[in-house]
Computed example of a mutant assay.
Amino acid sequence: MSDRHVLKMLRQMASGRWSVEVAPAMATTKEFARLAAIAQQFGYEYAGIRRGSGYVMSFVPDLGPQARARAAHNWAQYPHASDGGARPPLAPEAIDLLKARITFDMSALYGNQVLRSIGLVGALLVFGLLRGTTPTVFAGIACAVLVVGVPLGLAVNRHRRAKCTALLQAAGFIPMTDRNGRLRYVPPGQLPGYGDPNAGRA
């Protein structure tokens, strides 16, 4: 992930935008977590991640008094952060917790992707049977890959999700269901409307 994504994010936050989205073309979960940790230093909170052409991570202002005070302090101490200047140091434990939250959210997206893939292959198989040999062969190969890959992928996904759950619960994060029906873990004492970029608008 290039630094330009960090600068673009900070410029939007400096302008006071309510909802900020960042979509690095290629980023690891740790890089996403680092981005979210920087956002926290300047008064914004990780609100969720979704699929676009890649992954799109969103942030909303953290209206808690501690977050407001931290943001005011950091903008005063690092006035050129959004122009490529110095930024406050990041705590490794904060990055680890954000990585767990982001990974947990991504695991739900992975499950949805698997279901879509199964549906697509099923449709391709039916199409192949109706149209001829070649599409049927491709559909058969895809089905074989899914038979092997899906159970393995789901098992890895469950393990990763359980590991993140344990870490977040130990840190006091609270499970909640968002407006899309997805289970999320939010920081203790989080204000109502968390994760909804439209919450709090006039």
Rank of each mutant, 00 (worst) to 15 (best):
N180Y: 09
S117W: 09
Y46F: 15
P61G: 08
G85M: 01
L115S: 14
L125V: 13
G85F: 06
A86H: 07
V145S: 06
A100V: 04
A202T: 14
G122A: 14
V186Q: 04
P175K: 08
P187R: 13
G132I: 03
S117Y: 07
T136C: 12
I95Y: 01
A155V: 13
P88D: 04
A166E: 11
S117V: 10
A166P: 01
S107E: 01
G43A: 09
K163L: 03
L146G: 08
A199V: 07
G153P: 05
I102Y: 00
D196K: 08
A71P: 04
A81L: 04
Y44H: 03
L146E: 15
P89W: 04
G140E: 03
G16N: 03
A155I: 11
M57Y: 03
R158Q: 09
M13Y: 04
D3V: 09
R101Q: 14
L120T: 15
F127D: 10
P151D: 02
R131I: 12
S82D: 15
M106Q: 10
A39S: 13
L152V: 14
V137I: 15
L97K: 02
L130D: 10
F138C: 10
M13C: 11
Y46G: 06
G84V: 01
V147N: 08
R160S: 07
G48T: 03
G149I: 02
L146N: 14
M57S: 07
V6I: 12
Q169E: 15
L90H: 05
D196N: 15
V60A: 12
A144I: 09
Y46I: 06
R11V: 03
R87Y: 03
I49K: 00
R51S: 09
Q113E: 13
K8N: 13
Q12W: 08
G84E: 06
W75I: 01
R50P: 05
L7H: 12
A170Q: 13
D105K: 00
S117L: 15
N180I: 02
R50I: 05
N74E: 09
R161L: 00
V147H: 07
G128D: 07
E21W: 08
T134F: 12
H5E: 06
Q190S: 14
R11A: 10
V126R: 10
I38W: 02
A47V: 08
R182K: 11
F32Q: 07
R131Q: 15
E93A: 12
R184E: 08
N198V: 05
R11Y: 04
L168G: 00
G122H: 11
V150C: 03
A108G: 15
Y110S: 02
R87L: 10
